[in-house]
Structures are given as structure tokens and as C-alpha cells.
Amino acid sequence: MSLHKNRVGDQPWVRRTLIGLAMALTVIFLVIPVVVIFTQALCAGWSTFAGNIMDEYTLHAIGLTLFVALLTVPLNLIFGTALAWSVTRFKFPGRKLLITLIDIPFAVSPVVAGLLYLLLYGRNGWLGGWLSTHDIQLMFAWPGIVMVTVFVTCPFVARELIPLMQQQGSEEEEAGVVLGASGWRIFRKITLPNIKWALIYGVILTNARAVGEFGAVSVVSGNVRGQTNTLPLHVELLYQDYNIVGAFASASLLAAIAILTLVAKAFVEWRQAKSELSAPETRGV
């Protein structure tokens, strides 16, 4: 602090005002909403809360949501790593375009994302027609939910890896090639330790979004209770049924996952900063 005595905003009153304002707004907009989720979920007592969670349909929604995340995360992990490797380790025409293309899911409204899949794979779609003559139903069933979730979450891993791998450069890996190591070995022994934390970070973000996606999933799910209802859709259903306490009970599970995500994220950032400090040490191939 005392290092920058002569910088803008260092007078005590400016400092106090700005910190106070930032804290007040953070509490109002970010902290109290979380408090509300848990108070609403528990306002009818623990036994009601437990009853709401142990409800047959809620349990099914939890299961489906975890299942969707379990399929989505590995797919996007492979894609994100492959994409980051190709755009940061090689130069080829269309490289910049490829980097921009993977941002599409961030810019597109989730409802539009769901619609795109519905139009293509739905019964009237040009691929969906063929699929339905072969008795394959993707939309209004779990495969459709997985597909749109993969779409919505596919930028996260790549977005975390690309800047880091660009910054690290490929000298270490090239040294590995010169020493005669195989490609897989280079990736495992040199690249992976360098990008480990960014990779975990990407997985955490992918998982959080996969668990919580609402708009895109709600277009392709069909919202059948006990069949295609994910946890966020279940929250909506209960809320529309005026079962507010039930809705908040399910919402509190999602909020708990969000809080865990933030804690994990803070931990990963801390580890990342630590590994950056110890970066110069040489690693064996």
C-alpha cells in the first residue's frame, strides 16, 4: 500500500467511500440473493426440505443432471485440448477464424441454440426425418439435452487453455522432440503438467454451466417429469406450480454447486499463481 502513496484515490476518504460502495453493492446484488435461496429452501423446516429433496421427481432430475454433466465434460475436455493444441502449436490458414468460431456459443442466445438443434434433429428437420424413420429419437429425450449442453459449454476448456499455451510457447515440447520422445509422451510429461490447472479450471466452468443450463435445454427437453426434466427445469416447474419452497429446495442444490464451483475456482487460481512462481525450474522428459 505505502509503495503507491502518490496514486489516484489514495486519500483515506476516497478509499473508504469506494470500498464501502463496492461492498454495499456486492452484498445487495450478489450475497443476499444467495442467502435468500437457502432461507426460502429452509423456511418450512429441515424435514420439509429433506422431503422436497427426496421427492421421486427431484431425485430423478438430480440423476439426469449429473448424467448430462458426466457425458458433456469429457467430450468438451477432449475437444478443448485438441483445439488449443492445434491453434497454439501450429500456424495454418483459418486459424484465427477457428478461434473466433468457438466463441459462437457465448454470443448466441441459449434459446436460439436449442432451436438450431430442434430444427435439425427434430421430426421435421432434414436429419431428423431420416432419424425418425430409423426409430432414433434425439429431441425431447436425453440425447438432445446432452447435445445442446455440449454446444453451450464447448468454449470453456479451449478459452482457458489457448492464452496460457500461447504464452508458454512450445520450446519445451520441441526440446522433447529433439530428444526423441513420442508425441503422447511429450503431451503427458511436458504439456500436461504445464496446463494442468488451466485444464481443471476449464472443467470446473464446463461442469457448472452443464449442470445449470436452462434456456437451450428447455427448448429440446419436452419437460416430462421423471423423464426429461433436469434440475434447472425442475426448479421452473415447481415454481410455476406455486410450490415455492420446493422450487427453492432444488435451487439450493444448484446454488450449493455454484458455491463449490467458486471455492474450487479460488483454489485453482491460488495453485496456478503458485506454479507460475515456480515455473523456471526444469522438468525431466
Binding site: 445449470g212 436452462f214 444448484l254
Partner: peptide, 8 residues
């Protein structure tokens, strides 16, 4: 806001 599902 990025971690919390939008419906929640």
C-alpha cells in the same frame, strides 16, 4: 452470476 444457473 456465471456459476449460478440462470433459472435459480
Amino acid at each position: 452470476p456465471f456459476a449460478l444457473p440462470t433459472a435459480v
